[in-house]
Each structure stands twice: as structure tokens, then as C-alpha cells.
Design a protein around this nucleic acid. Structure first.
Length: 474
RNA sequence: GGCGAGUUGGCGGAAUGGUUACGCAACGGAUUGCAAAUCCGUCCUACACCGGUUCGAAUCCGGUACUCGCCUCCA
């Protein structure tokens, strides 16, 4: 199967061919860990998770190396640590470590709820400072960087290709720049590779004094260490194209002139909320955790994210969430009790995904499988896309069957008051019961965070069993 | 100001020259202990606007309007 992907560097859809036939290498910019992940952070994670699955399907489970970094050196993290430290009195680095450790745990929890698989490597910037220092040294030696007032800056004028990734010329960019230019920069486009840290900030020793790396060098150092100086795909949000990715590409090209760095660049579109840009001031910043706590299932969030092509801007609305929930409910109903383990993802679904990750197209194939009653194929394909994965444990399933049996008795006795209460309460915790002449059936539908739902189901089943037994005696 | 993306039925959203995609919602009817589902029907021949190419255009070309993103260490 041919895989085509849109390359933002060339502005064209290209047939994907890995540099090494048996080893596909992908790097995606991961989160800066200072707060809960919002749906904008989640989008690239979900999109490239799906691409990861597709590539592994095509090239082999062990043949794809996927690196998604964690930025744990950042001034926002420092600011939060300083704030906390004033009340705790702990050492700054310890505080930073505990903040970032906790935030990383949150991130993993939230992404797992969205059905995201772990990447092959998840490097933390703090573990690669040595590599960054080496790379900065290399750039200085090759005269692509200069030292000024304790800072090391990349000299954009030393690299004529600067701007080629984002396809814009340095001259045009100056016209409307809103940036206040630091006085030590030779050119306003130059950017920091290393900056000095005072005693209130985390720092590492370097030939240029105690300091910390700039953001862009983090990704360059981690990717070249884990993937090599040339690799296949580099992904991230479209807002990173300039300056972050442009700078990464420039640094890497100048430090390793023999290599080509990333061959294919992919950028996902931004998320808006009810037609507005997400921002703290508008109070429309939606975190994955908030949505889960509102009872929106992870797979519902995932389906909303995949319902729009990844390059397109996506407007997050309650209506779309409701639509996704409704679709998943139907698919859950169709696939209840179906064992799909001997099936693979449907060929046409794969073909849609292979066409620059056409997820809306793939979803429409899923709809057709649902309409045709191909339950096992629907489930296998949905699972491939990270949907319909979670199910009840065998133990809970048994308890549900017992309650369903008691409810049948109640219905046979025309005790509709009792049977309706059971149906409603089960429905509240995500066990959806439908009655027909052929008998009653149920299906499981995830609601919010899985752990909380499982506890709620367990409790409700216990209550209903007691209630049914008592109710039946009268 | 520069660069880029986009504008498809009530909503979401595919489809790069030639069959009413598809989904969700809403409304009416059938069915049902009730709910949901199901079935039939309706909104539904939709593609921002103007012009061109073509036997034929949502799709190609030219222009216009509008929306959005980036040019700030934002996913």
C-alpha cells in the first residue's frame, strides 16, 4: 500500500518512502510540562499516534521508531516552581523535578484515556543537556553562532537557507514583526541557543557559564541523538512551523551539514473553541481532564479530534461532542459482544488513512461497515483507529448479566416500575439497555474517566441486585 | 505589511472533470408497556461570488469577497 503524506516544506502531497527501507523514524514535538494538557496539546498526540499505528502496520511493529519529547526546561515551569517555592522552601531543582514529574504523570493518564499508545522514546530535555551543549559548541566552531552578554545566539545570516522550511523570506518577515528585539542580537531573527541563569533559576555548567538551553536546541539535540542526523518525519502543531521548526532545521543543518535532518514535515491545524481562539483570558481553555470529569469519554474526544482532517482547523463545540458520542453509542451497540480478534483493520479504512491520514474518509468507511452489519470488521477497524477499545471486565460483565436476568423477571411480572429504574440507573453509569421483542440487550458505553466509571458501575450493580431481589418479593 | 490555509445542505464533513458521498440533528408517520432502536418520508441535487476553459466543473484557469493561522520560547 502506498502512503502519501502532505509535506509542509514543499506544500505538496508526497509518496512516503523511508530513508532506510526497514526503519522508519519519526519525531514529534511533545508537551511542555507545566500544566494539564489541553485539547490543543492532545490533537498532535492523537494524530501522530494514528500515523504511528499506520506506519507500524505497513513497515512492521518493531520497524518504526517514534520519538515524542518532553520539554521540562522552560521559563513557565521555572516561574511556577519559584511561585511554589516561596511557600514550600524546598530547593528549586527539586521543586521543578516534582512539578514536571507530576505533570508528566497527568499527561500520560490523559493521553492513555484518549487511546494513545506510548511512543518508542520519550526523552526529557533535562537528560540531554550534554548533547545540547555539544551541539552549540559545534555551531560556534562552524561560525554559525556567536556569544554575546552570556548568551549564545544562532546567526541566522550565516545560513542562507534560513526561512526555506516555512517558505518565507527573512526580508519579508521584518516588515510586520511585532517582536521587541533584544539588544544583543546581531539580526532580529537570531535566536537563543544558550542563556545565562542567575541563582534563582535552574542552570547547567557550560563553556559559556552556568545557564540553560533555548527551546529550539532541545529538539535538535534529542532527535539527532535518538534518531540520527537524518530521519523521515518531523511533526507538530502548525504554530510551531515558524519559528520553532525553522530554527530546529537551521541549527541541525548547520551543525550537521552532511545530513538532511527531517525529510518530511507535518503540521496539524489549530483548535478553536466555539469559534474563538483558545485562551486563558477568554476562559475557554479546555483540558482533557476537565472534559473527562464532565463525563465525556476519552474515545469521544478522540473521535471529535479525528472527525476533521488533521491539517484543517478544528472548531470544538458541544454539538460535535454530542455527535461523536452518539456515533460511538451506535457502534458500541452494533459491536457489543463481538470478538474481532481474528479480523484486521478493513482495507478501505487503511487506504483512507494512507491518503494523508484522511480520517473523515476512514470514518465514513466505518459508517458503511456499520450500515452493512459487518460488526467484526467495524470493531477491528475502529480499534485500529484507537476507538471502541475499552470494554467491561469479565467480572463486571457477569454482574451485569445477573442484573439483566433479574430485570427480565421483573418485566415478565410486568413490574415496569422496577425494570425501568434498573434500566435508568444502568444507563447513568454507561450500561445502555435496549428492549425489543427478541429480548433485552445491553452495551457498554464509556463515560468520562475509566477508573471512576468502573467504580460507579460496580456500586450500581450491587445496589440494583439488592433492590431487584427485594422488589421481586413483593 | 509579508507568508500560508480555507469557504460544500440546519450542523459536521468526504470527493481533484462525468452516478443524489456519508454522518449527526430536526420534523411527520409506522412500531412499542414506556424509553431507545428500527422502518418509511421530509429539509436534500449543497458546493462563497464573478468570469473563463470544456460536450460536461464542487473539482481546471483568472479575478473578487470573506474567514482563519503564522510572522511572540503557543500543540
Amino acid at each position: 500500500m502506498k502512503i502519501s503524506l502532505w509535506n509542509s516544506r514543499t506544500g505538496r502531497k508526497e509518496t512516503f518512502t523511508p530513508l532506510q527501507p526497514e526503519r522508519v523514524r519519526m519525531y514529534v514535538c511533545g508537551p511542555t510540562v507545566y500544566d494539564r494538557a489541553h485539547i490543543g496539546n492532545a490533537r498532535p498526540v492523537v494524530v501522530f499516534d494514528l500515523l504511528f499505528s499506520l506506519l507500524r502496520h505497513q513497515y512492521g511493529q518493531q520497524q518504526v521508531v517514534y520519538v515524542r519529547n518532553i520539554t521540562d526546561i522552560d521559563d513557565k515551569i521555572n516561574a511556577r516552581a519559584l511561585e511554589l517555592n516561596n511557600s514550600l522552601g524546598a530547593s528549586l531543582l527539586d521543586t521543578i523535578r516534582s512539578i514536571t514529574d507530576e505533570t508528566i504523570d497527568w499527561f500520560h493518564e490523559d493521553m492513555a484515556a484518549l487511546g494513545v499508545l506510548p511512543p518508542t522514546h520519550e526523552p526529557r530535555a533535562t537528560d540531554y543537556v550534554r548533547e545540547m551543549v555539544d551541539m552549540i559548541g559545534e555551531l560556534l566552531a562552524r561560525r554559525h553562532a556567536y556569544v554575546r552578554e552570556g548568551h549564545v545566539l544562532f546567526d541566522t545570516r550565516s545560513y542562507p537557507e534560513y526561512g526555506s522550511l516555512a517558505r518565507r523570506s527573512p526580508r519579508d518577515m521584518r516588515a510586520g514583526a511585532r517582536v521587541e528585539v533584544a539588544p544583543y542580537k546581531t539580526s532580529e531573527l537570531d535566536f537563543v541557543l544558550w542563556k545565562p541563569s542567575d541563582d534563582t533559576l535552574p542552570g547547567w555548567e557550560s563553556p559559556w557559564g552556568r545557564g540553560r538551553p533555548g527551546w529550539h536546541i532541545e529538539c535538535s539535540a534529542m532527535s539527532s541523538r535518538l534518531l540520527g542526523t537524518s530521519f523521515d518525519i518531523h511533526g507538530g502543531g502548525s504554530d510551531l512551523l515558524f519559528p520553532h521548526h525553522e530554527n530546529e532545521a537551521a541549527q541541525s543543518a548547520c551543525a550537521h551539514p552532511e545530513a538532511e535532518f527531517a525529510r518530511l514535515w507535518m503540521h496539524n491545524g489549530m483548535i478553536r473553541v466555539n469559534g474563538q481562539k483558545m485562551s486563558k483570558s477568554l476562559e475557554n481553555f479546555l483540558t482533557v481532564r476537565q472534559l473527562l470529569e464532565q463525563g465525556i469519554a476519552g474515545e469521544t474526544i478522540r473521535l471529535v479530534l479525528l472527525g476533521t482532517h488533521y491539517r484543517q482547523q478544528l472548531d470544538w463545540t458541544d454539538r460535535r461532542v454530542e455527535e461523536a458520542r452518539s456515533i460511538l453509542g451506535e457502534w458500541r451497540h452494533i459491536t457489543a459482544g463481538i470478538d474481532e480478534s481474528d479480523r484486521n483493520c478493513h482495507r478501505e479504512v487503511l487506504e483512507q488513512l494512507a491518503d494523508d491520514l484522511n480520517t473523515p474518509g476512514a470514518i465514513s468507511v466505518l459508517h458503511r461497515l456499520a450500515a452493512d452489519g459487518s460488526a467484526a470488521e467495524l470493531k477491528a477497524s475502529a480499534v485500529f483507529m484507537g476507538l471502541l477499545g475499552d470494554d467491561l471486565s469479565d467480572q463486571l460483565r457477569k454482574s451485569v448479566m445477573e442484573v439483566m436476568r433479574l430485570r427480565d423477571q421483573a418485566r415478565n411480572q410486568r413490574n415496569f416500575d422496577l425494570s425501568d429504574r434498573i434500566r435508568n440507573q444502568l444507563g447513568d453509569v454507561g450500561i445502555i439497555v435496549r428492549d425489543s421483542k427478541a429480548g433485552s440487550r445491553y452495551h457498554f458505553q464509556p463515560v468520562g474517566a475509566r477508573d471512576a466509571q468502573m467504580i460507579a458501575i460496580d456500586t450500581t450493580l450491587g445496589e440494583l441486585t439488592r433492590m431487584a431481589k427485594v422488589g421481586m418479593q413483593h
